[in-house]
Design a protein around this nucleic acid. Sequence first.
DNA 1: CCCCATTACTTGGCCGACCAAGGTAAAATT
DNA 2: AATTTTACCTTGGTCGGCCAAGTAATGGGG
Lengths: 180, 180
Amino acid sequence: MTADAAQEPRTTPECPATPSAVLDGPVSHAISRVSRLHRIAAGRVLRDLGLHPGQEFVMMQLWDSGAVRQSELIKAVGLDPSTVTKMLQRLEHSGHVRRRPDPADRRASLVEATDTSCGLLVEVRKAWGELERQTLDGLDASERTELARLLGKVEATLCAEVTRGGATECDAALKGPAAC
Amino acid sequence: MTADAAQEPRTTPECPATPSAVLDGPVSHAISRVSRLHRIAAGRVLRDLGLHPGQEFVMMQLWDSGAVRQSELIKAVGLDPSTVTKMLQRLEHSGHVRRRPDPADRRASLVEATDTSCGLLVEVRKAWGELERQTLDGLDASERTELARLLGKVEATLCAEVTRGGATECDAALKGPAAC
DNA sequence: CCCCATTACTTGGCCGACCAAGGTAAAATT
DNA sequence: AATTTTACCTTGGTCGGCCAAGTAATGGGG
């Protein structure tokens, strides 16, 4: 094995007592890991469509809302404005999105999905159905609704926590069912 | 060009019927949103410690395991090797981590947390406790265990799905309690 | 003994995502 | 009417994260 001068496989260097199991207890880690795996799965089903994970979020919003002010889009997806700007630049360059100045407000932009992107709509919807299936494959109906409910609660909690001391975001993200 | 003749504020371009509510139904979106909020919250509690969200994952692993081969670390955290490499470069530059060649294998590296990083250990642990509290604030005890259980199941499912057709990863991520 | 597959890591490129700071235009105040 | 404030977006920088490709060393057949 590793012929090191120190022969004892010290589990901890000189650090104070390490209660171990720091990594499995917290739900926080589970969220991170699940999110990462989910993103990878998303990337896999979206790859053939020429979309990168995260973009489908924006496109779905645009397909759903039609032409909107960019600020509205930003509120809807709940992301940082700069993030949306750069994503839109790439989506525009890919031909999925069109932007034009808002005649009513010269600093604003109107964003909409292009006609050619409509073909994508169907496939993205299908891909997301597949992703959803993959995600919830091991859960029965009641577990699924329960998971959705719990995630909604956590989202609301975190939203309140994050908003506190920050900007007023994610009010649009928590629309319909679960109030914020 | 920019002068468009369309004056009507069409809610949807020419796309086929948009069943709407594409965004709230799927658990997938909930996962994404919760993950994002959670990451922001993590960044907030870690900011004063000089760590970026994601790094605490690696550091905790190192504090827990002591000096390890980089490949072991990679398997443990379940991230892409290149991701870990770059993270370690930054952590090394920050003085939190030390790397040295493995005498037994000249292509491998041994990684360990530095002594100075041990002070961080306590604070990171505290910060993660706070984060966990913030995350689960709105849930009672039974809901918390249920959420953990469901996330574990989803993780296992996604893990299997992602592993299928890809590399053999995330077996180490699903260690202790929940089998993969 | 040499060749070749495997392992271990690095580099480069790209994207999502954040923050911080900037610039321009509309709205609010004075 | 002039000035301040606020809103809307953009740019630059940094990180986490992926993939794809490359380098170097180990180890297993022929």
